[in-house]
């Protein structure tokens, strides 16, 4: 740390500040300058604009140029049309009729109950952003439709056995391996008997008995044939 005598230091600095160029020398110098009599040496002065300010000017100019370029780019950019989402036609799925099916068996009526499957309907509005769901055919859905067909055939089998057979053919076409195929064949036997096609009904009944290893349809078939001697 400094321990120089402050008074001495101040005296020296004041002496330096008080020093003056003589008036004669000063006037002589100015006259020489105005007369162009001073031979220059190679010395340049500092920049008139301080370095800090000059840097600010340069940075400002660069920023302006950048903004101008961004603005120009925005003006000249070709707008590409946004992709139009495909128009999806509304898909309407009609829910099946009431899923309550009553199947008459030999011991009485057996009530088969199946829940009504929920079917997702496709989005009806065209520009929907979400992908349109296709209706998914589930097992429950198929079972419901099988039941519907068999219920229709059952209502027809007594009074309109031909129509019942046609309905059963539709069932066979739509569900060749349906879960209710056995029930459909029983109704077919009954319809054929009602039409008087006993031989045809007997062949089908024999085939059913062979296939029914568990003996589920035997009693019912026998009762049907008893009703149509």
């Amino acid at each position: 740390m400094s321990n120089a005598p402050n008074e001495t230091k101040q005296t020296l600095l004041d002496a330096a500040r008080a020093e003056r160029q003589s008036e004669t020398a000063a006037k002589r110098g100015l006259d020489a300058l105005l007369a162009g009599a001073v031979e220059p040496i190679d010395v340049e002065g500092p920049p008139a604009v301080p370095e800090k300010n000059r840097l600010a000017w340069v940075l400002g100019a660069l920023l302006l140029a950048l903004l101008a370029f961004a603005w120009w780019s925005k003006l000249t950019r070709v707008e590409t049309p946004a992709p139009v989402p495909p128009v999806v036609a509304p898909i309407v799925v009609t829910p099946p009729p009431a899923p309550v099916v009553v199947v008459e068996l030999d011991a009485g009526a057996v009530e088969l109950d199946a829940g009504v499957p929920e079917v997702d309907a496709g989005q009806a509005t065209a520009p929907a952003p979400a992908p349109t769901k296709k209706p998914v055919v589930t097992d429950d859905d198929a079972l419901a439709r099988e039941l519907a067909l068999l219920d229709e055939a059952r209502l027809q089998v007594a009074k309109a056995p031909r129509a019942a057979l046609a309905t059963l053919e539709r069932h066979r076409a739509q569900f060749p391996r349906g879960a209710l195929k056995l029930e459909a064949d029983l109704l077919r036997v009954e319809a054929q008997l009602n039409l008087g096609r006993k031989a045809e009904a007997s062949r089908l009944a024999e085939a059913l008995k062979k296939a029914d290893t568990e003996g589920l349809v035997h009693d019912r078939l026998e009762r049907l044939f008893e009703q149509h001697p």
Binding site: A25, G29, V43
Partner: peptide, 13 residues
């Protein structure tokens, strides 16, 4: 210093 001062103001000119 007298001479040098003239050079300084020459630059300023």
């Amino acid at each position: 210093a007298d001479d040098a001062a003239q050079q300084v103001f020459l630059v300023a000119m």
